[in-house]
């Protein structure tokens, strides 16, 4: 070996590297299922959507429905609330988003009821902005589900949803 250090790689060198590479790939392939099994399984993924009848929700009220194991708040907003949210200047918001971008119909707000801080469930009609207040670490949201104060980094998530009719929505 010492006599031809700069020689072309030998057959043995190539076999050596190829064996190592094959062993690395095989180890990766063996470990992958052990890691990937922890991801959400098919039955969890299958619970993707829920239909909700919203005809019975009176103005000013919030109903909570379960979607993917999480609560979704459906809030029938009053005219006063709608006007206030639409008039909120974006500069007052830690995560600026106009109200119009967060609703499909102004009287209906649909948001995932999970605080974006650490996942607690905020309580409705509470807090300084009369939207939601999270009891865990004190985040407050307005009636558009936007974060106004506290440690939560972003607004309450708006899930994918569609109005199937005037009184029925499909979430997910």
């Amino acid at each position: 070996m010492s006599t031809n250090d700069k020689a072309e790689p030998s057959r043995r060198d190539i076999l050596y590297v190829a064996t190592g590479a094959a062993a690395a790939v095989a180890t990766g392939a063996a470990v992958w299922p052990l890691i990937a099994q922890m991801n959400p399984d098919a039955s969890t993924l299958a619970l993707a959507s829920t239909e909700v009848d919203i005809a019975a929700v009176p103005e000013g009220q919030i109903v909570t429905v379960k979607w993917r194991g999480k609560p979704v708040f459906i809030r029938h907003r009053t005219q006063k609330e709608i006007e206030r949210e639409q008039a909120t200047p974006l500069t007052d918001l830690p995560d600026p988003e106009p109200d119009s971008k967060r609703v499909k119909k102004p009287e209906w707000l649909v948001v995932v009821g999970v605080c974006t801080h650490l996942g607690c469930i905020p309580t409705g009609h509470e807090g300084e902005f009369d939207g939601w207040f999270c009891p865990c670490h004190g985040s407050t949201y307005d009636v558009s589900g936007r974060i106004r104060s506290g440690p939560a980094p972003t607004n309450l998530e708006v899930p994918d949803y569609a109005f199937l009719s005037d009184t029925k929505i499909k979430i997910g």
């Binding site: 399984d41 969890t44 993917r68 194991g69």
Partner: peptide
């Protein structure tokens, strides 16, 4: 997080693991 808890929220897969 979804990998850790095995779903969109804490549920049976989380408890099991």
């Amino acid at each position: 997080r979804e990998w850790l808890i095995g779903g969109y929220s804490v549920d049976n897969p989380t408890l099991n693991r």
